[in-house]
Simulated scan of single mutants.
Amino acid sequence: MSRVDATRGPEGSEGAEGSGESGYRFGHTELPPAQADALRRAKRLEVVTFLYMLTCVTVVFATAGSSQAMKTAWVEDSLALVPPLAFLVAVRLGRRRPTADHPYGFHRATGVGHLTAAIALLSVGLLLAVDSAMGLVRGEHPPIGTVRLLGHTVWAGWLMVAAMVYTGIGPFVLGRMKLPLAEQLHDKVLYADADMQKADWMTAAGTIAGVLGIGIGLWWADSGAALLISLSIVRDGWTNLHYATTALMDERARTFDDERPHPLTRQVDQALANLSWVDDSRSRVRDQGHVFHVESFVRPLSGRTPTLDQLEAAADVLRELDWKVHDVAVVPVRDLPETIPDPG
């Protein structure tokens, strides 16, 4: 068996970003320049997102009044602080090199961050859904009064609408900026954050509809909008909880958006099949967070026993497929494991 790390750079202190052209690492894996640049931009965007969402939480809290939809939007904006914080913490932890207690490194920090954000979303979403539904059942009529602003009397609903416009534009823009970075970095926490933010404008639009509904006498519009928003939070939470738990249970590697199995699994076996001494192979590709752990079981051609040089060369071929191929084990076997299906 040949087991090698994806990179063979000089050892540095734990948590160091490493040397080289990119200067950014996930554990032992030094990022290519494109991914290093994507990581720098993603970190800046998440800091901007965190600070921006803090202002949104403040603005919505100041204008919420007695509107259930506004209160629900405030909770959702507060929850939106969790994913960027989880991303920044996970990236920092993921930079650490493997230790004796953590021989696979700290890449799973991304999965933990994903799971934390998902549980927070689902739990609060369910509570808000129950509260909003009870408001409809009880027939609550939330009043929206007036305020004095710059010497003028203004319906407070207009301030709520303005607050929702402010909180809706930012996530729409930031979410679209994060999606391509999530794909480049294979970062599911960043993708979950981008996906949630991309849809946040719908929350803002629903809240605006609820507030205006109260203004024209539709008492149920406020609780109805709050219920729709909370159900959206529940959907996001459930989807992310499902993907986070299956990833931590070592589901086969999937794409950054969890839409399909990652094509690298097939590419690994195709690359091994092109070697002159290989008859067939089956590989297990495990998503460690940003990088993949590859275990390839290889059946040599009849009468051919691979040398150490050939095994190491096979591992090098796999490492060259993609920067995400972090840890490689190539194992010559007589019979391929039946538990690993053919990716083709």
Rank of each mutant, 00 (worst) to 15 (best):
L227P: 02
H107A: 15
G303Y: 03
G12Y: 13
V317Y: 05
I229C: 08
W323K: 01
A247S: 15
G65E: 05
D5F: 08
F26T: 14
G12M: 12
E30S: 14
R304N: 06
A100V: 15
E76N: 11
L185T: 04
A244C: 10
A313R: 09
M53R: 05
E140V: 15
A90G: 12
A80R: 12
A162P: 06
K178V: 07
W219Y: 14
A38L: 01
D257M: 02
G145W: 03
A86W: 12
A194C: 04
I144M: 09
L179G: 00
W238R: 00
A117M: 09
R96Q: 10
F172M: 06
T29F: 06
M1E: 10
L241G: 02
W155N: 08
L150W: 14
T239I: 04
P98Y: 03
V4Y: 02
V328W: 11
W158K: 00
E30K: 08
L174Y: 08
L212C: 08
I216W: 13
V161Y: 10
T339D: 09
H102Q: 14
K43W: 03
R41S: 13
G9F: 07
P332R: 00
F50K: 08
K324G: 09
Y243K: 05
A221Y: 08
A162H: 01
L88G: 04
T63I: 05
V89A: 03
L115A: 12
F50L: 15
R252P: 15
T55L: 02
A109I: 03
V165C: 11
P300R: 10
V57M: 12
V59I: 15
S78A: 13
S78Q: 02
L115Y: 04
M134F: 12
K71D: 07
P332T: 06
D327F: 09
